[in-house]
Computed example of a mutant assay.
Amino acid sequence: MKKIRKAIIPAAGLGTRFLPETKAMPKEMLPVVDKPAIQLIVEEAVASGITDILIIIGKGKRAIEDHFDSNTELELNLEKKNKMKMLEAVKKTNGLNIYFKRQEHPNGLGDAVHTAKSFVGDDPFVIMLGDDLMQDKTPLTKQLIDSYEKTNSSTLAVMKVPHEDTSKYGVINPAKEVQDGLYDVTSFVEKPNPEDAPSDLAIIGRYLLTPEIFEILENTKPGKGNEIQLTDAIDTLNKNGKVYAHEFKGSRYDTGNKFGWLETNIEFGLQHPEVSDQLKQYIKDLAKKLD
């Protein structure tokens, strides 16, 4: 069985929900306290044993490339001033095997993933969406890898969502729970209306797929939004073989909308050793003012 060593991070979206901030700044570079969101995704990948990462970018995303490049002048300045903690934080992303590829025309997640075909080759791989930050004792990506090593099959991460929110996600139609939290799936449905949703188990931003998905993507017709939907291709993959769904029971933070991003910053701020005490006191004081 081949080891999972490659990850794809799609980051070609326009970030229109954060305009005007994202007119010049990639949404993936919006900070979560003191780190851009995409760095947290990369850190999860590395913690899960991933060694090679392809970030799919679009126009205006140069800041992502610059962030993961070394900055010799800054590093020397910090070292000269003996700011070693800052230096360590800056150098944390140095030396990683990170590659970049441009998606020329945004045409859906399925199309973005297909651009990574030559990078993936014949290996199983993971897809990590930058809008979803996950926290658990074992990183979610590692959970999917562990599942693959048992089943030798593609596996998606799912999580229970409010039924009225199913139209925002791909949703699974589970056949049965074969192990605790691992589902055999009848079908995958992209953004169903709540009245048509087969379950409340929604696909969240982590996928582990076998390379057969690329041939399927080449023959997948545009779906919802007239774009190539990865969920549609996965449904076909499931009909040709087997795709499991792994239920994530940790904490998920959605940074893809304004409120979710603010909520994420508060939650991560409360965990941050430099600002947690101040932030707790601020929230308490603010709550008194709002009463």
Rank of each mutant, 00 (worst) to 15 (best):
L201V: 02
A7R: 01
E149L: 15
Y207T: 01
K85S: 12
K35Y: 10
V120P: 00
V113S: 03
D235T: 02
D232F: 02
V243S: 06
A112L: 10
I4C: 01
F119K: 03
P192C: 14
D136H: 12
D200H: 08
D34T: 13
V275M: 06
S154L: 10
N77C: 14
L286G: 15
V126L: 12
K160V: 06
G260C: 06
K288F: 03
V171C: 01
I216T: 09
Q281C: 08
A245N: 05
T186H: 13
V46N: 03
V171P: 08
E215K: 12
N238R: 04
E215N: 15
D111P: 03
T141E: 06
Q278K: 14
F18S: 03
L54R: 07
I8H: 09
Q39A: 14
K249S: 13
T255P: 03
K191P: 00
L290E: 11
G110L: 04
L201H: 05
Q229W: 05
E44K: 01
R5I: 08
P192W: 08
E177K: 08
G121D: 04
D146F: 08
I172V: 12
A112Y: 07
R17L: 10
P10W: 05
K239Q: 08
K81N: 15
N173H: 12
M128G: 03
P222L: 09
D34E: 15
P194S: 09
R17K: 06
Y253M: 11
T255C: 14
K284D: 14
G110Q: 07
N240S: 11
I9Y: 04
T210F: 08
K27P: 00
T16I: 00
T231Y: 00
P222V: 12
D291N: 15
I228K: 10
P26E: 04
V189C: 02
M1T: 10
Q135R: 12
L270K: 02
T155I: 08
P139M: 04
I216S: 07
G223Y: 00
Y207H: 09
K150T: 15
N94K: 09
S70L: 13
T141Y: 03
S153F: 12
G95I: 02
N257R: 11
D291V: 14
I9V: 12
T220C: 05
H246M: 02
E79P: 00
E44G: 03
A37V: 11
K191L: 08
A37N: 02
A112C: 10
M159K: 15
P174Q: 07
N82R: 15
A7V: 02
D165S: 14
S118I: 07
D165V: 03
K2Y: 01
E79D: 06
R17H: 05
K280Y: 14
M29P: 09
D122K: 05
E28S: 12
M128H: 10
D66K: 14
R5D: 02
D180C: 11
A175V: 04
I228T: 01
